[in-house]
């Protein structure tokens, strides 16, 4: 129905993402998909569509774009101090754009990754069942790459009349709320294993008792942490086996790396623990220099937490799509 044209700035790493490409991990494909899934889902619900419609994920700095049609958008996740035609706008709120309007996203003032959903969604053809961009494999999304100036993103027709989307708001999560003091400490829950038996008790204690800081080498593949060295009992290498988003690898440096959406599917480092899927979004928004601590939960607790988490997002989806 219309186009968004990317103006001078495409942002540091702006890619089209949905919930991920599943069913191909056995062939070596990382699942990809939005790093902060709850934020991505909120963006879609705000513009009145199911939570898995592809959105734009922006990293550290956002896009500048102009629309050639009237439409409704929402910005969630990291706060890029966005403006529409020089007027500041809020995150976690449905926003009306008129033909010719210019949206400018700046640098993230809270968090790292922001999401832009447009009512109707972007007209992107799925590749292997998903619209997610895998930049490393030049696969999916917008030509398999990040957006740059001059790109034109086509929009589909909205699922709901845009007039019914006005004033839709969702609460801003505390760690992304710029009206609150910045949070630079994040506690994430994890289940020990699959290779926790390769570590000494003092290694496990170090892992669970220390604050680790997020290094600048963190990206969509993994959040690389630094801090106290985790002592191993029998070396840091294993015969390569499966990796999932959330796997906490400990290579020979003894410092943990939490694997994220673009993780390789197999690897040969010991994995001391696996972060709960419901807590990965906190790491997706952790800036370089932020502090992370791991709290162990049992498998049974993890299962309960996961069920509560998915029930909560289903309730939210139901509440926001039943107009």
């Amino acid at each position: 129905m219309g186009f968004f044209t990317i103006l001078q700035s495409g942002g540091l790493l702006s890619t089209v993402q949905d919930k991920g490409r599943f069913g191909f991990m056995a062939s070596g494909f990382s699942p990809a998909g939005a790093m902060d899934l709850p934020a991505m889902e909120c963006a879609n619900l705000l513009v009145g569509q199911s939570s898995d419609v592809p959105v734009l994920e922006m990293t550290m700095t956002g896009v500048h774009l102009q629309t050639d049609c009237d439409c409704v958008i929402a910005l969630t996740g990291a706060d890029f101090a966005a403006k529409i035609n020089d007027a500041p706008v809020q995150v976690y709120r449905a926003l009306r754009l008129r033909a010719g309007d210019v949206l400018r996203c700046g640098a993230a003032v809270r968090g790292v990754r922001g999401y832009l959903a447009a009512a109707g969604g972007f007209a992107i053809e799925p590749v292997m069942g998903s619209c997610s961009t895998s930049v490393k494999f030049s696969l999916g999304g917008f030509e398999g790459r990040k957006l740059k100036a001059g790109d034109r993103l086509a929009l589909r027709c909205p699922q709901l009349p845009v007039s019914r989307l006005d004033d839709r708001v969702l609460p801003v999560p505390a760690h992304l709320d710029k009206t609150r003091p910045a949070q630079n400490e994040h506690e994430v829950r994890a289940v020990l294993g699959p290779q926790n038996d390769r570590f000494s008790q003092s290694g496990i204690d170090t892992f669970l008792g220390s604050w680790y800081f997020v290094t600048t080498s963190s990206d969509r593949m993994g959040i690389k942490l630094d801090g106290a060295k985790i002592e191993s009992k029998s070396g840091y290498d294993i015969i390569s086996d499966g990796i999932v988003p959330g796997s906490v690898q400990v290579p020979a440096s003894g410092r943990p790396i939490v694997m994220m959406a673009d993780c390789q599917t197999t690897g040969g480092y010991t994995k001391i623990a696996t972060v709960l899927s419901s807590d990965l979004h906190l790491l997706a928004q952790a800036k370089a220099g932020d502090w992370v601590r791991f709290a162990a939960v049992t498998s049974d607790e993890a299962a309960r937490i996961a069920r509560r988490h998915s029930a909560k997002s289903r309730r939210l989806e139901y509440a926001y799509l039943r107009v």
């Binding site: 599943f22 991990m25 056995a26 015969i239 086996d241 499966g242 999932v244 599917t265 197999t266």
Partner: peptide, 17 residues
Amino acid sequence: RECVPTFRSLTVLFDPA
């Protein structure tokens, strides 16, 4: 959801809901 076969193990991914 899917399985990842490797040299000596199978990682099985499931929907916790």
